[in-house]
Amino acid sequence: MSTTQPASNLCPRQRSSHRIAVWCGTLFTIGLPLGWGILASFLLPPISPSATPQEVAAFVTEGGILQKLGLMMALACVGGLLPMSAVLGDQMRRMEGARPIWAQTQLACATLTVWLVSAALVFFAAAAFRADRNPELIQLLNDLGWLTFITPVSMIVFWMCAVGAAILSDRGEPSVMPRWVGYLSIWAALLSAPGFAAVLFHNGPFAWSGLLALWIPLLIFIVWWITLTVYLLKAIREEAGISER
């Protein structure tokens, strides 16, 4: 609750690095669906949790080199989330003031997301690495990959809530981000939650290949990310404007 705005010192050189860092987030949000989802065809359509070991093995064998390339591309891209979350944390610190707990939560959650998505991709890569092994083992790796990808929703939920809480607690004039972005984050958090139920189901909408565990959280994450990118860039622009004055 400091009445004096902390001295804004985003010089033009820093402004460009902040911008570049925001765009790094694109690597994650485009690179992951493109590499893992389309090139490696994990989303075309997703393999059902009720598929037999033979079907899973056939999927991995047919994937061939393209699947491995897709997984490599996704693995290379996931880290892009980190610079973006650093900028997000920086702006959240402006919202929160002196002792920014949500900004720190946010950074930790983003880090863990990158770590867990990478782990999931490595499981898929391990399945593709020796596609000729026992089909049941391939199925095990496939299960591990999907469950690592879909079910650890806790940090995504806390991540989105932390961003929402910081935006809504912003008392500055003008605010760093519009308040509806905060509410959007809370909505996104509530929507991402059903993913954990993928542990239970082999088919239907709550299974890992289903509408409510996979597609809606994926879509809402992309919507959230687009919104954050737009308003982060705007916040950087406005902050630079303040410091030039």
């Binding site: 519009p178 308040r179 509806w180 972005v181 905060g182 509410y183 959007l184 909505w187 509530l190 929507l191």
Partner: peptide, 8 residues
């Protein structure tokens, strides 16, 4: 903004 959550 509340309506973003409610209608969403």
């Amino acid at each position: 903004g509340v309506w973003v959550v409610v209608l969403g």
